[in-house]
């Protein structure tokens, strides 16, 4: 048995390190493959999962490191660096960090989501994102992932 932390445990460590405003971990009663198919399909699914997001443009291909552009419903654009691996997704812009992780668990899936703001001089923007990402957003996010995975 490997002693290395699985992706969900790993995301939990990053959430602690980033003092993340949003971190949620839940068991989804659907197979891992179906759940992760939703999470990993960033350009098609992320706008369904994040309410203020209009589009998330990611270059096609299997590269584990990508540049992406998020377009908010407000028109605000933000460039992200993306790290994608099986059960693991980490996205970072100048202002915010987002992450998702999943592992199979007893026929279902343990799923985790993280949202954090980065230290920045742009306090009002940070406050806005903090508000958008905080609190109950985590539970709602996992709920939407579950809905989207059921549709597959």
């Amino acid at each position: 048995m490997s002693n290395d932390p699985d992706p969900v445990r790993r995301l939990r460590v990053l959430a602690a390190g980033l003092h993340a405003g949003m971190y949620r971990e839940e068991r989804i009663p659907l197979p891992y493959e179906r759940v992760w198919a939703v999470a990993a399909d960033l350009s098609a699914e992320l706008p369904h999962l994040v309410p203020f997001l209009h589009a998330f443009q990611v270059p096609a291909g299997d590269a584990d490191r990508k540049q992406a552009r998020a377009v908010a419903r407000s028109g605000l654009r933000e460039d992200f660096e993306v790290r994608l691996a099986p059960g693991w997704c980490l996205m970072q812009s100048r202002l915010i960090v987002g992450g998702m992780a999943a592992v199979p668990e007893d026929g279902g899936t343990r799923f985790a989501v993280l949202g954090a703001t980065r230290p920045t001089a742009l306090r009002p923007v940070q406050w806005l994102y903090g508000h958008l990402l905080g609190g109950r957003r985590g539970r709602a996010f996992v709920g939407r992932v579950t809905e989207r995975a059921r549709l597959r």
Partner: peptide, 22 residues
């Protein structure tokens, strides 16, 4: 970098230090 809130650096640091911790 991680202390400055860089999550990607923090992720690399996690990979680097996990074998020693184990």
């Amino acid at each position: 970098a991680a202390q400055g809130g860089d999550a990607l650096a923090m992720d690399e640091l996690l990979t680097l230090v996990t074998p020693y911790v184990t």
